[in-house]
Amino acid sequence: MTRGGWTFGLAMLVIVLAGFLAPHVLKNPFYFFAGYVILQYVVIATGWNILGGYAGYINFGAAGFFGAGAYASAFLFNAFGIPLWGSLIAACVIGAGLGLLMGYLTLRIQGVYFAIATLGLVIILETIIHNIPALGGARGMVVYGPPPPGWAAGPPQYMFVLMLLIAVASVSLARWMQLSWVGRGLRAVRASEDAAECSGVPTLRLKLLACAVSGAVLAAAGAPYPFYTSFVEPVTAFSLIIGLNAIAMPLIGGTRSWQGPVIGALLLATTQQIATITISSELNILFVGVVLIAFVALAPNGLIGLVRRKGTEARL
């Protein structure tokens, strides 16, 4: 492993330990409620960026994967009593499968058509779930999760630590992908598919891999959701704001590296959490929309791009 690898691993370890210790310092459970959502968006942004950032395929359907993960775990728990870690694995498998399906159907089309097709995925999934009585239809499903284990201070603290572990796993995966032959191949695909192929890169397979991994991570972000809210229903599980945030956060942070979506998610989700208590949640979408337009127009390479540019200009 490289020096950067050790530093990263150590940092992740410290973050996980801090997450476990935090409930002993912060007594107000609200921080963990809010922290859960912020971390959930770190996972979503990171998952989205594997396909959207590394490979350059803009997926408007993140909410479809998130919702599928949420419904998978709610159903598996209610029907079979499968615990969260089990449904987390199931959600990953379903997300990967959905990603592959989406890839097979849409990867041959490019650019804006791919984006439109992914939007269709959300509508299809939401409609299907609306019409399955076993999944609660439009009314949704109540999920009475088991009490948290003894070491946890309470349900929100427990869910927070769980999402932290998922976030650390997702970010580690995204980092590995970026730095390995996979990421290099995807960047080559993004720059020029023909040149990538002629350099020996199996572009279709690599893109399908990115679809599957991205889908798995997005679904993993949704898996704990029913246990967090004790309830799932189609409108919130497939919410517009999830799909919008999934795109906005990496764009704000920067799509070229694993740090970008993390920074974007931390900034935007924290702002949203503060805004939700101080203003209203409807203004959230408006806010994200405005920020997104601003970044696309003024800083297409995100905050990391802005900082890098400043750096190069200073050196010149």
């Binding site: 032959w181 290099r184 080559a188 720059a191 020029s192 350099s199 020996g200 890169v201």
Partner: peptide
């Protein structure tokens, strides 16, 4: 020319070296 934009010059060469 179809360079792999977003990559350094040397990384452009690492693509074929990774895959061939």
């Amino acid at each position: 020319p179809h360079p792999f934009r977003g990559m350094s010059v040397v990384e452009n060469l690492l693509v074929p070296l990774d895959y061939i």
